[in-house]
């Protein structure tokens, strides 16, 4: 399952944000998409992804959490967990 471990709507939102930032069609981004598979996912765009997610979901990602953002799937799962555990 492409978005295993994360809520579908959260994954969709992360996927949409990533699509805008990386300039890649949504359809081409899966839960397995990573810096190794997306040409435009470099360190600058990684930062832009972090900042966009923080703004969209109103949360702050710690260094450990940023380090966990290896794929879009793990990123969506991370956001989902934070949304469930953090007071908003």
């Amino acid at each position: 399952m492409a978005n295993e471990g994360s809520d579908l709507s959260t994954f969709d939102e992360v996927q949409g944000i990533a699509s805008d930032i990386f300039g890649v069609a949504v359809a081409k981004l899966t839960a397995d998409s990573s810096p190794d598979t997306v040409d435009t996912w470099d360190s600058v765009q990684h930062l832009n992804l972090v900042l966009a997610l923080e703004e969209r979901f109103g949360l702050q990602l710690s260094p450990e959490e940023i380090d966990q953002m290896k794929t879009l799937g793990t990123t969506a799962a991370l956001i989902q967990t934070k949304l469930q555990t953090s007071p908003r």
Binding site: P35, W41, S43, Q45, H46, L47, M69
Partner: peptide, 15 residues
């Protein structure tokens, strides 16, 4: 950052 040569470490620059 090692992310310069290995995308696996793309997060290091941000950190």
């Amino acid at each position: 950052s090692e992310g310069i040569v290995d995308r696996k470490y793309a997060s290091v620059g941000v950190l």
